[in-house]
Design a binder for these strands. Sequence first.
RNA 1: GGGAGCUUAGCUCAGCUGGUUCAGAGCAUCUGCCUUACAAGCAGAGGGUCACUGGUUCGAACCCAGUAGUUCCCACCA
Length: 879
Amino acid sequence: MEIPKNYDPKITEDKWYAYWLEHKFFKSTPDEREPYTIVIPPPNVTGVLHMGHMLNNTIQDVLIRMKRMQGFNACWVPGTDHASIATEAKVVALLKEKGIKKTDLSREDFLKHAWEWKEKYGGIILKQLEKLGASCDWDRTRFTMEDDLSEAVIDVFIDLHAKGQIYRGVRMVNWDPQGLTAVSDEEVIHKEVNSKLYYVKYKIEGDNDEYITIATTRPETILGDTAVCVHPEDERYKHLKGKRVIIPMVNRAVPVIFDDYIDIEFGTGALKVTPAHDINDYNLGVKHNLEVIDTIAADGKMSPAAQFYVGEDRFAVRKKIAKDLEELGQIVKIEDIKNKVGYSERTDAVIEPRLSMQWFLKMDQVSKPALENVLNGEIKLIPEKFVNTYKHWMENVHDWCISRQLWWGQQIPAWYDSKGNTAVCKTKEEAFEKLRVKNSELKVEDIKQDEDVLDTWFSSWLWPISVFDGFKNPKGKDIEYYYPTNDLVTAPEILFFWVARMIIAGYEYRGAKPFTNVYLTGIVRDKQGRKMSKSLGNSPDPIELIEKYGADGVRVGMLLCSPAGNDLPFDESMCEQGRNFSNKIWNAFRLINGWEIDANAKQSESNKISVEWFDAKFNEQLNLIDDLYSKYRMSEALMTTYKLVWDDFCAWYLEMIKPEFVDGKSLPIDKATYDATIVFFERLLKVLHPFMPFITEEIWHLIKEREAKDCIIVAEWPKAKAGSTGIVKDFEIVMEVITNIRNIRKQKNISPKEKLQVFEKVNQGEAIKTYDSIIVKLCNLTSFEYVNQKVDGAISFVLKHAEFYVPLLQNIDVAAEKERLAKDLEYNKGFLKSVEIKLSNEKFVANAKPELIANEKKKLADAEAKIKAIEEQLIGLKN
RNA sequence: GGGAGCUUAGCUCAGCUGGUUCAGAGCAUCUGCCUUACAAGCAGAGGGUCACUGGUUCGAACCCAGUAGUUCCCACCA
């Protein structure tokens, strides 16, 4: 069978993915094994795969595959999030295209459209995850708005309300005038923008000439002003006590109030107070009992209460009113200023602080165990630096606004009668029973359910419990077996949105953490360091990348540069490196596969030692890889694996044992070496599998026929032995000798085909001849011999223990050789000197550990010997 | 405004409890090779005042202080 020179992922990837699915390797059910569980951070149901998902899910897949091979009952639960505001926005936009206005639809009709949309387009992203090789248990796929999960959300709401943790009230909230809903503090993104600071004169009541000048960035809110506030200690304004000022245009007289909230230094030290449209002003209003005039409507346009500009957008009005005030002569000056403005995370609209009736979850109590158990290490954040951020947030957390003025989501289970009584319960019937107690004339028809839905995060915070039906069936087999899950892999951006809240819910509803380790990935950026985003169009399509480089190639590319918590400056060349690596592995297979076996041939000394060496080397590196995994140092685990395969296995081991080529034909290989090589290759494939699932499975089956149950995906992870590394150390010297000889060849421009001869003069200890045959082979030598004297007419080099001579046919450039040796000599003398200084330092000898001193002494002796050898060679060259 | 982190080769990063001339890896670069597994490759080489300044120490990339630059998080200064 002809095997192509280049690995083609297109042929293998879909085939193996289908095979794994068919044989249910991703499936997990509780059994006697120890579970290893990951719940996916559910992507938005509207989402399409982007590079962030790619990274995040690759890491999860690597972890889950490794644990699966290590014998755990690995369970990776997939699913999607209903993403209320994002999805609703999308559906609204789509309807608009069809000429349908949301406001013309009933709630039911709208939801019908939304569900239709979800069924049609939702979950594309899960299909895309398959392309990357994600080994999720697809039978467990959940959706945050499916019946069971919604029910859990409702039950939790009712429960927390019963516990007094949820309350309803009119508060200043972050209002998204585009999404037409309240959002939580976490959904507001503050950005610095260039603004103008307007200085506006307000007339003092009863005095025709006196004015007070206030400074504001939001002149459009002037119409809603109900006071002017100054600092009680401010000498400039003390005389205004008890006075009133006239609001321009509307000519309303409002009081001058005094509060030490004011910063005397800012602007004029006088603040206009608009309780309806600013959180600080609102607080002042409450304190000083001020009137609230709501001049901006929900859609961000001026309301009738404003009297002017009614129906016009607040930003248009800002410009207009500035002009109008200017004409009235009430603008003193306008300054440029930088200030921070809040934007909606979802719609990017400028957030308006707005008074409205909302539901809130009290955070002070429930957050306590969640903080404690991160601080005490019960839950680990990786990297650790996030613990600080987490702590700070948890200690300063505000109550969580959980109601949203949307339809797509779980409708709040609160019921009202016409008299303002409220019942929180599951059904209208229950509500009727409850409300009737307070209102005996109540009819069922008069009961209305709260129009609002709950924040999406109010359902996703239950995810690790609800995906195992932990609410429906708290003693169920699944929840008892899989919970707490092991690792959570997610982006630091949603540490508060989601991670912190899952921890809260975990302790509240299971009395236990939801997961043990939280691995926070970096943010994928482009080469210029910009965050990848749809609007910038700087994000490559992961699916296209997969087509180009193969899933294995892209996985490797992503992981090569992704230390935990650090941003990942993505560059397509990384994937190229990944693809090249696939090809390297492929060709290693081609080489081995092409060998003929001679069952009768005796294993050569050099093959025997090669096998011994690689066995030891593999074991050493496996220990390292296991250790790196345990520390979640994925990037380094991959790099270590990469070098083990490429350098140690391919560049060294395979070259060492590769049969000679005679008469246009490769000689056969002895069976012992061949068998060992296959074992090594299989072990390497296993270690590679979590990173590169497809190519490893493909080669695994090409090596030999195997039954389904023996797929590499479920093969046993190699076990590292404690073992000695003596041979590995010895071999490092051999490698150095070989590199030196190759270097001479290169420098002297000697063709690799030309055979050389090498002599070794041992200066220290005895000659270790074990590896000589390997040197002969890898350097293409006629012989490697031992001598007692210098060899003339040869290029030489000196290692710690011995001198090496490579006689050349051509004349030796004595001057150049001298220079080279002189340089070497100088270096070694410098080294010697540094060691001598160290050893003659009394304090060093007195303070340093004895082993260290012994080591220094050995270095001294080695250096001296080496210097002597070089010097002798220099003398020799003079002839 | 508060807090946290980062700064090591052209790029992306390692560097554990201070101790091997401790300065390392991969990629990129340069040189020579189309050598029957692989040019998506092989062999070799060159790259760094460890941000800066001072301190502690026998000894500092590592510990301490300050400075500069940078990133992130939090926060209601109009």
